[in-house]
Amino acid sequence: MLVFMLLPITQKMLIRIIKVLFKLFGTAYIVEKVREKLVLSVAEFQHTIRIQIKKIGFILVFVGCIFVLFSLGLRFLFLGLAYWLNTLLNSSFLGFFVISACCFLIAVFAVLLLRKKIDNQQGQQEKNINGENNLHDFQ
């Protein structure tokens, strides 16, 4: 009681102090709730990322093994074809040249096919962009 008599606090000042305290406590409460929600969402995000990484890791290992086995199989197949052509052509190197030329032609054909596919995709994207712009012009 003595403290209140010494300080000339008016009723308006007391109301302002109470409002500031409520705002501070309200803000602290909101910050705490946001922190709890963020902790939960971050934990959930980390869990889903770990699951996706495990799936992607398994897929990468699987694809890598298939690639290695397939490439080794093709390598031995082409080597066998080259030796077989060498014996047919009675040469010690002509079979290797024929097989390497065939591999080069296959690689060029694959690059050309992929290039056409990429060009077609870019053309479709340009048409979509131009089509959207034309729709806006008509409206």
Rank of each mutant, 00 (worst) to 15 (best):
Phe4Tyr: 05
Leu6Phe: 10
Leu7Lys: 13
Ile9His: 05
Thr10Pro: 01
Thr10Ser: 06
Lys12Val: 06
Met13Val: 08
Leu14Arg: 12
Ile18Ala: 02
Lys19Gly: 00
Val20His: 03
Val20Ala: 02
Leu21Cys: 04
Leu21His: 07
Ala28Asp: 03
Tyr29Thr: 12
Tyr29Gly: 03
Ile30Gln: 03
Ile30Cys: 01
Glu32Gln: 08
Arg35Ser: 14
Glu36Val: 13
Lys37Glu: 09
Leu38Thr: 11
Val39His: 07
Leu40Lys: 13
Ala43Arg: 15
Glu44Gln: 15
Thr48His: 07
Thr48Val: 09
Ile51Val: 08
Gln52Gly: 00
Lys55Trp: 02
Ile56Pro: 00
Gly57Arg: 07
Leu60Ala: 08
Phe62Thr: 11
Cys65Pro: 00
Cys65Asp: 05
Val68Lys: 06
Leu72Phe: 15
Gly73Arg: 09
Arg75Gln: 04
Arg75Asn: 07
Phe76Arg: 09
Leu77Tyr: 13
Phe78Ala: 00
Ala82Thr: 02
Trp84Met: 10
Leu85Cys: 06
Asn86Cys: 04
Asn90Val: 12
Ser92Tyr: 14
Phe93Tyr: 15
Phe96Asn: 04
Ala101Thr: 15
Cys103Leu: 10
Phe104Glu: 05
Leu105Thr: 13
Ala107Gln: 07
Ala107Gly: 00
Ala107Val: 11
Ala110Lys: 14
Leu112Tyr: 12
Leu113Glu: 05
Leu113Thr: 09
Leu114Gln: 03
Leu114Pro: 01
Lys117Gly: 02
Asp119Thr: 14
Gln121Pro: 00
Gly123Ser: 10
Gln124Asn: 06
Gln124Phe: 02
Glu126Leu: 06
Asn128His: 06
Ile129Asn: 01
Ile129Cys: 01
Leu135Glu: 13
Gln139Pro: 00
